[in-house]
Design a protein around this nucleic acid. Structure first.
Lengths: 105, 105
DNA sequence: ATACAATATCAATAAGTATTGATATAATAA
DNA sequence: TTATTATATCAATACTTATTGATATTGTAT
């Protein structure tokens, strides 16, 4: 019985895309940041202070998340407010679940 | 407004656990293996030949998956047959979705 | 017993990435 | 203007992990 996955360009591209997404969110600090932003938008200083991270490290992780378009930001005075990109996250989780769940159902 | 996540031992432990799971499955070859095993159980030689991976590399990734109890194996003659542990995968994805999805719903 | 096939292990290296320290940029206020 | 606060960037380091090559183990057959 031939497998149905990993056998064509589209399938491989999707797996690659999901793996990239997973790499981004598998970093514990980034997962925490997403978890926070899921509840409310927050400025950088609130995030790093709440999580007990270094300021520059927090900026770095936010950049990774933003480059992957999982979060957005806007300037508000001195502060930069980050918010989660719900649609992007939802789409990636859908794609992920396509691979992990729905065992024949 | 105080965040509801990352603020207690249980929440932090869950995030840590999810991140560990994501680290395991964010490796592209392991994701492919899971994808294959989701369809059918397979022996090691079928997996590495199908995916075009080195035999020892495939064994290594299978060990990582097995150590994390995402797959199981049984001996069958010369061959070792691997199968996915559906419940484990399902439980981890549930936990993951708890963090990524259900925006207030 | 020997030979062969399938799988696993181990050491070494390569590759990627998180973290840190120092510094730069941007916005605001005095 | 200068000073201050918030954020971003950059280079260097530390850490983790994927990959490779060689070898060992295990099961089966002759």
């Amino acid at each position: 019985m031939k497998p149905k996955c990993c056998n064509n360009k589209k399938s491989l591209a999707e797996i690659s895309q999901v793996a990239e997404f997973l790499k981004i969110i598998s970093e514990e600090n980034r997962l925490k940041i997403l978890c926070l932003l899921k509840e409310n938008e927050m400025c950088v200083c609130d995030i790093w202070q709440y999580l007990g991270l270094a300021q520059n490290l927090t900026s770095h992780h936010l950049k990774v998340l933003k480059d992957f378009e999982l979060v957005s930001s806007r300037q508000e005075g001195l502060k930069v407010i980050y918010s989660i990109n719900k649609n992007a996250v939802k789409n990636y989780s859908k794609l992920l679940n396509k691979f992990l769940n729905s065992y024949g159902e």
